[in-house]
Amino acid sequence: MALTEQEKESARAYWKTNVRIILISLVIWALVSFGFGILLRPMLAGISIGGTDLGFWFAQQGSILVFLALIFFYAWRMNKLDAEHGVGEE
């Protein structure tokens, strides 16, 4: 079964959007975990949160919480994208 040109274009748009969401999520995760937790930790040392400095908090808790938030965001956004392109689960 050959795909029509419209179906091919929809598939391209779907995967382009999917890859963009993944890349944005990975950049956010890398920035929070590696950037804030390691590279920018000395700059964040003066800011206190929960009895410790912000850089330490990002290294120990913040990156995990952001990762969990990104998982839920990705699932929500992909369900929406699936519905837009007619490939959602039934």
Rank of each mutant, 00 (worst) to 15 (best):
A83N: 04
A59V: 00
F73D: 01
D82Y: 02
S48D: 10
P42Q: 07
F73E: 06
L70S: 03
P42A: 10
P42L: 04
I71Y: 02
L65W: 14
L70V: 07
Q60G: 03
I49R: 02
I49G: 03
P42C: 12
G50Y: 07
Q61S: 07
R77E: 11
V66A: 09
Q61V: 14
M78T: 06
F58R: 01
R77L: 04
F67A: 13
W57E: 05
S63R: 14
D82A: 12
L68M: 15
A59R: 13
S48T: 15
Q60N: 12
F56M: 05
A45P: 00
M78W: 07
L44I: 12
G55T: 08
A69I: 11
G55P: 06
W57C: 02
A75G: 04
M78P: 00
F56Y: 09
I64V: 11
W57N: 03
I64F: 07
I49E: 11
D53V: 04
F73I: 06
A75Y: 04
Q60C: 02
R77Y: 11
L54Q: 01
F56E: 09
I64A: 10
Y74E: 12
A83P: 02
G46D: 07
A69W: 02
T52K: 07
F67P: 00
Q60S: 06
Q60M: 10
D82V: 01
W76Y: 13
I64T: 12
G62R: 01
I49C: 11
W57R: 00
A83L: 03
R77S: 07
L70M: 14
G55A: 13
A45D: 06
A83W: 08
W57G: 09
Q61D: 05
R77Q: 07
L65K: 11
G46A: 15
W76G: 01
N79Q: 06
F58D: 04
A45N: 02
A69C: 09
A59T: 05
I47M: 05
I49F: 14
G46V: 06
L81H: 08
L44T: 09
I71M: 12
I49L: 12
P42H: 10
I71Q: 09
L54R: 00
M78E: 06
S63A: 15
I71S: 06
M43D: 10
L81W: 01
L44H: 02
T52Q: 12
M43Q: 05
L44C: 10
F72E: 12
S63N: 15
V66C: 08
W57T: 05
M78K: 06
F67G: 13
A75D: 04
G50I: 14
D82C: 00
S48E: 14
G62H: 01
D82M: 11
M78A: 00
G50Q: 05
Q60D: 10
I47K: 04
F72L: 15
I71P: 05
A83I: 08
L54F: 14
G46F: 02
P42V: 08
R77M: 09
L65V: 14
L70K: 13
M78H: 01
A69D: 03
A59N: 09
S48M: 14
L54T: 06
F72S: 09
L54V: 03
G50S: 12
S63C: 11
S48Q: 15
G50A: 04
F56I: 11
V66D: 09
A45M: 10
G51M: 01
N79S: 07
S48P: 00
D53E: 12
M43E: 09
I71D: 04
F56G: 05
D82L: 03
L70N: 11
A69Y: 05
W57Y: 06
F56T: 11
